[in-house]
Design a binder for these strands. Structure first.
Length: 631
RNA sequence: GCCAAAGUAGCUCAGGGGUAGAGCAACGCUCUCGUAAAGCGUAGGUCGUGAGUUCGAAUCUCACCUUUGGCUCCA
């Protein structure tokens, strides 16, 4: 495969999800996304930072979208008078409503429903609120099982209200717009149909959900739809194919990533930088096995709490082996293989460790959620005295790494002690205080998720905002009060006593696979020069100049530049077009003029052109490499 | 895992009970070319896998695999 075509399609972009912990264990229930994630339009990064004016605007949009959900339900009831209706809240950029319908919806139903909705809007029906007693409400919704359940589940002291709009009445807390005329009949679009469990519970009935987007006017709707198109263009799965970066192959197992040579070039660039910076920051590298005997996972507790996320056992010599879902027990094994004193600490051990986790088939998603991935993992083992300094340093290091990859907007989330937790409260307090202190020292915006930490320790997560305004959780710094106990880790303190060290897990980029996916989408495949798989292509205007082109390649390759000549039989225009679609940062066109003056005509990916002496061009490119800049 | 949709050449897709199609890419030849697609030709497919219906299946049925959109944003 060499030259890919283009693709068009239409689908919703998935909100960022893949929330990966790096250490400890426990079920999925312990995963918590930071608070303040979901509200607002256009993807609010830090809801707390919104001005009151922006807040008001959002409230207005939310109200409009909520009303739009009612309008859609009214439209669906016209199509299916027997439909059972569930819930229909406003969401980011739009709304949805869940239905229990007599037949499966098809995409062809959506325009029909849209038509009904436009009619309802034009009718300019007022939204009328009426407070209603529980009995009346139950009577009204007799047969509407979901509504009945909702009513019964509402606390006794809550005032129930109905909103009536035309002949559609819904149990609703409101608020709504005054009347449907306030909605823009050209400002909404139904986007997709999806299955959704009633109340998100997989043991309950599967409902049909219709998602829609709604805006104040057609212009905003258009802008939003264009934004969705842009997201689609940048989809890492699409770009991964077009730029020949990676693949996932069903024959060989879902959720397992193949890094092709061009993707591997990028990964190696990332890893080289990563190792170099870790050594500069006082880390040591370790390498640990991919599998370990059950003793390890019994001791760590993974087999008790994490088994359903692990690949099943392999039996060899009558012993059970498991592929590692986390690196931490192995790092602990290295620690416990020796004896350390306070003089040896802190230890900072890093590993690009590949782990395997069973993810449910329906949750796999390109590089973003996979079953085998490489964490840029490290464990810090230190004395209580060193803890604060270690946290501050690791946070500083995280920010440096993220910024090196072009992410400038970074926010922190601090998750604190949950109800069920291991470790003494004093240790939690000390750890939380040091996390908070470090965040403040770096001047980061942050939110606190009270009680949102894992049972084994508090943590800081860092989220970055990408070029399209989406936020991605990448770094995580987590205390672990569990493994040191379970593995009985100790160090000898200055008073000769054996004491328990602090252990901190951390991943800066998260997983290389996911980080790669984020990078691809952030740059839309047009990477900074230092990450570009092919940095320079030399194109002779005719075969007569092949030798000079080869000479230019040789010269640049010696300088460490990833360069190749395109000596194919194709036309110049064709070659330029191809390498442009491959988003190669620099094309050097060479012909008679250039050969005679030992120069090159530099065509930058942006379309800019300039004539430069060969050695100047080399210098310019090396500078961009050094600065990790775009071309 | 569950619901829905999809899987046809390396890529993007059309077709649809009766000999498998296009464009791009690949390969060959011609042209020797100055900044986003030269021309002609050749080759390329167990139509996701397996079973079934049928004289005949890529097409219809069923099962499985994989992919895609969703599955705690609460009346």
């Amino acid at each position: 495969m060499k030259r890919g075509g283009t693709a068009v399609g239409s689908r919703l972009i998935v909100p960022e999800d893949s929330w990966r912990r790096i250490g400890g264990m426990g079920g999925r229930g312990q995963l918590k996304t930071p608070a303040s994630e979901s509200s607002g339009s256009g993807g609010t990064f830090m809801s707390a930072k919104l001005s009151s004016k922006e807040q008001k605007k959002l409230e207005k949009l939310d109200r409009m979208r909520h009303s739009m959900a009612h309008v859609m339900a009214a439209g669906v009831l016209k199509l299916f008078p027997d439909a059972k209706i569930a819930i229909g809240p406003p969401i980011e950029n739009g709304f949805y409503y869940d239905f229990d319908l007599p037949r499966k919806l098809t995409p062809e139903d959506l325009p029909v429903i849209e038509g009904y909705m436009a009619e309802v809007i034009k009718e300019d029906n007022p939204f009328e609120k009426q407070v209603i007693s529980r009995d009346e409400a139950l009577k009204f919704f007799a047969g509407q099982d979901y509504k009945v359940e909702l009513i019964n589940d509402l606390p006794e002291d809550v005032e129930l209200s109905f909103y009536k709009m035309g002949d559609f009445t819904d149990l609703c807390r409101g608020p709504h717009v005054e009347s449907t005329g306030r909605l823009n009949h050209q400002g909404f679009k139904l986007l997709s149909i999806a299955g959704a469990y009633w109340r998100g519970d997989e043991k309950r009935p599967m409902l049909q959900r219709i998602y829609g987007t709604a805006w104040g006017d057609p212009k905003q709707l258009k802008a939003h739809l264009e934004h969705l198109e842009e997201l689609e263009k940048r989809d890492h799965r699409k770009l991964g194919k077009e730029l020949d970066l990676f693949s996932l192959q069903e024959k060989a197992g879902p959720g397992l990533v193949y890094w092709h040579p061009k993707g591997a070039r990028i990964r190696v660039a990332i890893e080289d930088f990563w190792r170099q910076e870790h050594y500069k920051n006082g880390y040591e590298m370790v390498f640990t096995p991919h599998v370990g005997k059950s003793w390890l996972w019994e001791t760590s507790g993974h087999l008790d709490f994490y088994a359903e996320s692990m690949y099943p056992n392999m039996v060899m010599d009558k012993a059970d082996y498991y592929a590692k879902p986390m690196n931490c027990p192995f790092h602990v094994m290295i620690y416990n293989n020796g004896k350390y004193s306070y003089r040896d600490l802190p230890l900072r051990w890093a590993e690009l460790g590949t782990v395997y986790r069973y993810e449910r088939s329906g949750t796999l998603h390109g590089l973003m959620r996979v079953r085998g991935f490489t964490q840029d993992d490290a464990h810090l083992i230190c004395t209580p005295d060193q803890m604060q300094e270690e946290i501050r340093e690791v946070l500083r290091f995280s920010l440096f790494m993220l910024r090196s990859f072009g992410f400038e907007e970074i926010a922190a989330y601090l998750s604190t002690m949950p109800e069920k937790a291991v470790g003494e409260p004093e240790r939690w307090d000390a750890a939380q205080a040091s996390l908070k202190e470090a965040i403040e020292a770096e001047g980061l915006d942050y939110d606190i998720d009270e009680g949102g930490g894992a049972f084994y320790g508090p943590k800081i997560d860092l989220k970055v905002k990408d070029a399209l305004g989406r936020s991605w959780q990448l770094s995580t710094i987590q205390f672990d009060f569990n493994l040191p106990d379970r593995f009985d880790m100790t160090f000898t303190d200055s008073d000769g006593a054996e004491k328990r060290p602090y252990m901190i897990h951390r991943a800066l980029l998260g997983s290389l696979e996911r980080f790669f996916g984020v990078l691809i989408e952030n740059y839309g495949g047009a990477f900074p020069v230092w990450l570009s798989p092919v940095q320079v292509v030399v194109i002779p205007v005719a075969a007569t100049f092949d030798d000079y082109a080869k000479e230019v390649v040789k010269e640049m390759r010696l300088k460490g530049i990833r360069v190749q000549a395109d000596l194919g039989n194709d036309r110049l225009n064709h070659k330029i077009r191809y390498h442009q679609t491959q988003k190669v940062p620099y094309m050097l066109v060479v012909g008679e003029r250039e050969q005679e003056s030992r120069s090159v005509n530099v065509r930058i990916r942006t379309g800019e052109k300039s004539d430069l002496p060969l050695d100047e061009a080399v210098k310019m490119i090396l500078k961009k490499l050094e600065e990790k800049d775009l071309p």
